[in-house]
Amino acid sequence: MAKRGDVVIDIEKCKGCEVCISACPQEVLALAPQVNNKGYHYAIKVNSDCTGCANCAIVCPDAVITVYREK
């Protein structure tokens, strides 16, 4: 079984560009229906299939994603 991972998103810095959503192979991310203080729909985790591959964080233009993966 693939290793479990988790992501932490800094929602106030997220601009909702969706690049991370298209980069995620597990379809873990989606845009939230709510907006942050700047008025952007931010990325959120919608399921627990994350494997900690860090693809989302690597393409994020605003460096808002921190990735964890079990050792």
Partner: peptide
């Protein structure tokens, strides 16, 4: 269950 992953030893990527 997922919370226990979020600690510094499991970190694989963060903003430099």
């Amino acid at each position: 269950m997922a919370e226990n992953l979020i600690n510094p030893e499991n970190l694989v990527y963060k903003k430099t």
